[in-house]
Design a protein around this nucleic acid. Structure first.
Lengths: 322, 322
DNA sequence: GGTCCTTATATTCTTTTGGACTATAACTGG
DNA sequence: CCAGTTATAGTCCAAAAGAATATAAGGACC
C-alpha cells in the first residue's frame, strides 16, 4: 500500500536532501499555412525547457525566459498544462526525481526571427492519426485498427480483451462511436500501450511489433504534446483562444482554417460564420483583401475588449453535437 | 526582463543545491446533508498535505498515503488541479522555494471513520458569497458590493478604476451580467486584492479595511480551495463526476440537491430529471424509499459501465444558457 | 377515514440553438 | 466574356433546453 511507504513528518529533513529536479517545459503552438505546428529545439525532437530556478519569480516567468533564450520567441498567452512527476517517467533506474511543470503557449510564427537552432514541426507528423480534415486517414484504417485489434486479442483473459477492444473503439471511433477529436491523449496512450510507437519499447521487454509510421520525440515529450493538443482542442470550444494564433487582421475563412487545423476536422462554413458573427467576437475593419483569390474578403479584427466584458465567451465550433 | 535572470544550463548544478520543497496537497470534497464540504486537519483550517518523497511512485499515490494517514480517509477519484510555485506565495522573505502540486479528490463522508484530528467544513464558510441557492446572499449586496466599489474608486487613475469596476461587475454579476458560478477563483482574487479577507494583509502595507465576514485558511489554502471549487463546478457540467459523491443508491432529488450544493444554485426539477434520464447515466433499481417524506421515491444506481462506453458524457446541469 | 401536506413523477408548450443546404455576389485569369 | 473561385446572405428543420402544469402516492393529523 502506498501510505505505508510515505513515512512520517519526521522524514522531512531526509526528503529535502533528495535529488529533486524541477523543469519547466513548453508546448509552443502556432498555425502556419494551415498546419498546426509546435516549436522544437536542437536536432532531436525536443520541446523547449529549462530548470526552474530560484531567481524566477514564478514558473511562468521562468518559462518565458527559457523559451526566449532557446528559440528567440517571446511568448504571449501561457496556460499551465500538467505536472508530470511519476518516478520512472524519465530514466528507468536512476534514483532521481524529475518534476516537469508543462505549459501550453500560443503564438504566431512571424512574432520574431527564430534562432537557427529551433524550428516548427507540424504536430501531425507526430500524430498522423489525428488529422481528419480529409476524412479518416488511411493509417487509422489500414494500420492502427488491425494492430490494435491484434493487441487487444493478445491479452490473456477475456475481460481484458473486451476492455481493450472497447477502449480502442471509443478512442478511435471504430464501431458505432464517432471520432472525438479531444481524445488525443487517450489515443496516444493506447498506441503506446500496444507498443506501436518507438518510445514504448524503452525499459521493458519490448514486443517486436512493427511500429506505426510517425515521428517520435525524446523522453515523454510526445505524451506532453498529446496532452497539449487535447487541451487546446477542448479549450477552443469555450474560450476565444484561437485569436492568439491569428494575425491582427484576418478573413473569416482564415480563422476557420485555423480552427480546423487545430481540431483536425472540417467545419461547415455558413454555420461557422454565423457563430462567429453572432458572438460579436470580431468586428469588420472595412478593409478587404484580394489575396485569397475570388471575391475579395472582408478583413476582421478580434475585439480585445470582449475579454473584459464576457468571461466565458467561446468560439464554439459547430462540432458539439453528437 | 525575466529571461536575463534565468542563467544558462551551466547553472544546473547550483540550481539542484537550492532548497526546493515539493508538497502534495489535497482538496477532498464530500457533500454531507446538502452541504458541500472540504476535509481539513488540525485546529487551524488546513488542507491535508505532505512532502512528495522519493518512495512515492507517483504524486497521486503519495497523496493517497498522506491523506489516509492524516485523516483516515481512503481516496477514490483524484484529479490534478494546479501546481502553485510562485516565489512569495508562502513566507515572504525566506529564500526557499515551495512547490505545491494540488489535487481535487471526491469521496463520501461515510467512507470510513475519520481520525479525530480532522473534520468536514462547509466550503461556504470560507466563501459565503458563493452560495446562491436561496438567491443572492445578503453579504454580496450589503457588504461586498459597496466595498468593492469603494476599492475600485480608490485607484489613482481612471483606467484602473474602470477596469476594477468592470471586473467586479462580471465576477459578481452586478450590472447586467448574470451570476456565473464558475468564477470562484476570480471572485476570490478580487476580494483578496481589495484587502477584504484576512490573509490579504500579510506581508504588505495592509490597509485598515474591515473584512468581509468569513473563515480563513492558513497560507494560500483558501486560494487552492477556490481553484478546486471553480474546477469542480465547471467539470460537473460535462463529466459525470457527481456520482463519486453519491451513495450506491440514491433518489433523483438527492442527486439534484448534491449538484445544487456544488454549483451553489437551484435547478429546475423536471428539467433536471429529464436530462439525467435521457442521458442514461442512471438506472432504476426497482426499490423505493419513504425516507424522503411524501410519495416514495425510486432508488437509482449509477451505471458504471457507461464510463467505458461514452468518454465525454456529462451531467449537463440545466445551467448552461445565458 | 377523510383532509391536507409533502414529495415524486409525467406531460405539455415554447423558444432557442445548431446543423445541413441553397442561392447570390464579386473578383481573377484566360 | 466566360469559367472558376471565393465571399456573403438566407432558408429550413430537428433537437435541445427552459418554464410551467398536472397527476400520483405516500404520511400526519384531526
Amino acid at each position: 500500500m502506498d501510505h505505508q511507504a510515505t513515512g512520517t513528518r519526521k522524514d522531512r529533513a531526509a526528503v529535502k536532501a533528495e535529488d529533486v529536479k524541477v523543469d519547466l517545459i513548453a508546448v509552443v503552438v502556432a498555425v502556419n499555412d494551415g498546419e498546426p505546428c509546435v516549436l522544437t529545439i536542437g536536432q532531436a525532437d525536443t520541446l523547449p525547457s529549462g530548470p526552474f530556478a530560484l531567481e524566477h519569480r514564478s514558473p511562468q516567468s521562468g518559462l518565458r525566459g527559457w523559451v526566449e533564450q532557446q528559440t528567440g520567441h517571446p511568448l504571449g498567452y501561457i496556460e499551465q498544462l500538467y505536472t508530470f512527476a511519476d518516478r520512472d517517467r524519465i530514466g528507468a533506474e536512476r534514483q532521481q526525481r524529475v518534476i516537469s511543470i508543462s505549459y501550453l503557449a500560443l503564438t504566431r510564427k512571424e512574432q520574431a526571427g527564430g534562432s537557427p537552432k529551433c524550428g516548427w514541426q507540424s504536430w501531425y507528423e507526430y500524430f498522423p492519426w489525428e488529422d481528419h480534415r480529409s476524412g479518416t486517414p488511411a493509417v487509422v484504417l489500414d494500420v492502427l485498427r488491425p494492430r490494435l485489434i491484434e493487441w487487444a486479442d493478445g491479452a490473456s483473459d477475456a475481460a481484458t480483451r473486451r476492455e481493450r477492444r472497447l477502449r480502442a473503439a471509443i478512442a478511435f471511433g471504430f464501431d458505432e462511436s464517432r471520432w472525438n477529436e479531444e481524445l488525443t491523449l487517450q489515443r496516444y496512450e493506447l498506441v503506446y500501450e500496444a507498443g506501436l510507437v518507438q518510445e514504448a519499447g524503452i525499459g521493458r521487454d519490448a514486443p517486436p511489433r512493427p511500429l506505426v509510421p510517425s515521428k517520435s520525440m525524446i523522453a515523454d515529450h510526445r505524451r506532453i504534446l498529446a496532452t497539449a493538443i487535447g487541451r487546446l482542442r477542448s479549450k477552443i470550444k469555450y474560450r476565444p483562444v484561437v485569436f492568439e494564433l491569428m494575425p491582427p487582421l484576418f478573413t473569416l475563412l482564415r480563422l476557420q482554417r485555423t480552427v480546423e487545423a487545430l481540431s483536425g476536422r472540417l467545419i461547415n462554413k455558413p454555420n461557422f460564420r454565423r457563430l462567429i458573427e453572432q458572438q460579436e467576437l470580431v468586428e469588420k475593419t472595412g478593409e478587404t483583401t484580394t489575396e485569397t483569390g475570388g471575391r475579395p474578403a472582408q478583413l476582421y479584427r478580434f475585439r480585445h475588449d470582449i475579454l473584459d466584458e464576457r468571461p466565458v465567451a467561446g468560439t464554439k465550433l459547430p462540432l458539439t453535437r453528437a
